[in-house]
Computed example of a mutant assay.
Amino acid sequence: MSITREDVEQAATRIGAHVRRTPLAVIEAGAFGTPGPLALKLEHLQHTGSFKARGAFNRVLAARERGELTPVGVVAASGGNAGLAVAYAAATVGAAAEVFVPATAPAVKVARLAALGATVRQVGREYVDAYEAARERADAGGALFCHAYDQAEICAGQGTLALELTEQAPDVDTVLVGGGGGLMAGVAAALEGRARVVGVEPTSIPTLHRALAAGEPVDVAVSGVAADSLGARRLGDIAFDVAARCGVQSVLVSDDEIVAARRRLWQDCRLVVEHGAATALAALLEGAYQPASGESVAVVLCGANTDPCDLAG
């Protein structure tokens, strides 16, 4: 299964009344390693603090249209952000939500899940452990399963931010996104034939990078500062299909570079984002992606569910 721009456009129509149209900030030339101005898509201002609300609403609302949303509600597995989004979407339509997260999920995300009314289950040390438990729960109880990054409705919903971005910056040539999962898939499908998409991953979680090299999704080890939001062990089939079809470029950055990019966003712009969001900017700051002269570049700041205590100063 894959997705196209048409799927993204349908998602935009479906979720428009439920998500925020997030701002685009234009930063002066040279500030972050670009020869020209840099556009920052402030998606960390979205409901629940990440782009994930878009995909969650598309999945839940589409299921309700088909009569698949039963009183049992929804089940999701997440490192945190996807679960928050699903819990918020479910609460909005009056459905119950049960979210499985690894024990390593940040306390701030677990607390927010509970505040949204979700039943939280902490299972295992990695996303894959939570995923297997959630899948079993959904299969046994008849709940609607919401995948964090490998369902067509989820990916198409995430791509709606790219439709907004091109309305805000019609001449954009290249869009950098953190990770290589559902966000990359949705954005690349939305921009196919219109703009280049670059997936930026930590060297410690190179799912897209390894998949493109191998010609298929493969398992990778998971570790590092962005593991809570970019911590899937394997690239999804939808993401791989879209990346291969659309010629998505993959680059890698180190944990130290991600930490530095996150701090720069705070120091220079007073923007507080999580490490997964700073990953995309790190590619520009460290030269992993080098724009050509005259190239119009945008970076998606995809999430802000983080503890800002280490950003003081």
Score class of each variant (00 low, 15 high):
Gly73Ala: 12
Val177Asn: 00
Val108Cys: 15
Ala213Ser: 11
Ala89Tyr: 01
Pro23Ser: 09
Gly303Leu: 04
Leu161Val: 13
Val26Ala: 04
Glu43Trp: 01
Glu126Leu: 15
Ser293Gly: 15
Ala282Lys: 01
Ser296Asp: 11
Gln122Asp: 03
Thr166Asp: 06
Val75Gly: 07
Pro37Thr: 04
Glu98Phe: 01
Ala232Arg: 03
Gln249Ser: 04
Ala283Glu: 07
Asp173Ile: 03
Pro217His: 07
His44Ala: 03
Gly199Lys: 02
Glu274Phe: 10
Leu235Phe: 05
Pro206Cys: 01
Gly67Pro: 08
Ala169Cys: 13
Ala280Trp: 14
Leu42Phe: 10
Asp307Phe: 10
Val218Glu: 10
Ala148Gln: 08
Arg66Ile: 09
Asp7Asn: 14
Arg135Ser: 15
Ile238Leu: 08
Pro37Ser: 12
Ala282Cys: 11
Val200Met: 11
Leu281Lys: 06
Cys146Asn: 05
Leu311Phe: 10
Ala87Asp: 01
Ala53Phe: 01
Asp241Arg: 11
Gln290Val: 15
Gly199Ser: 05
Val198Gly: 00
Glu136Tyr: 00
Val128Met: 10
Ala130Ile: 06
Arg262His: 09
Thr160Asp: 13
Tyr88Ser: 10
Pro102His: 06
His44Arg: 02
Leu165Met: 08
Ala162Gly: 11
Val299Arg: 01
Pro308Asn: 06
Val187Glu: 01
Ala105Ser: 12
Gly294Asn: 05
Asp150His: 09
Gly178Phe: 14
Ala239Cys: 05
Val225Pro: 09
Ala76Glu: 07
Glu28Met: 07
Ala140Gly: 09
Val26Gln: 09
Asp129Leu: 11
Val93Asn: 09
Asn58His: 07
Leu252Ser: 07
Gln151Phe: 02
His18Asn: 12
Ala288Arg: 15
Ala211Met: 08
Leu301Arg: 02
Leu191Pro: 01
Val259Glu: 12
Val8Asp: 03
Leu24Trp: 00
Ala260Arg: 11
Gly313Asp: 15
Cys155Trp: 04
Ala29Val: 05
Gln249Glu: 15
Glu9Ala: 12
Asp171Trp: 00
Leu235Glu: 07
Gln290Pro: 05
Val8Ser: 02
Gly79Phe: 00
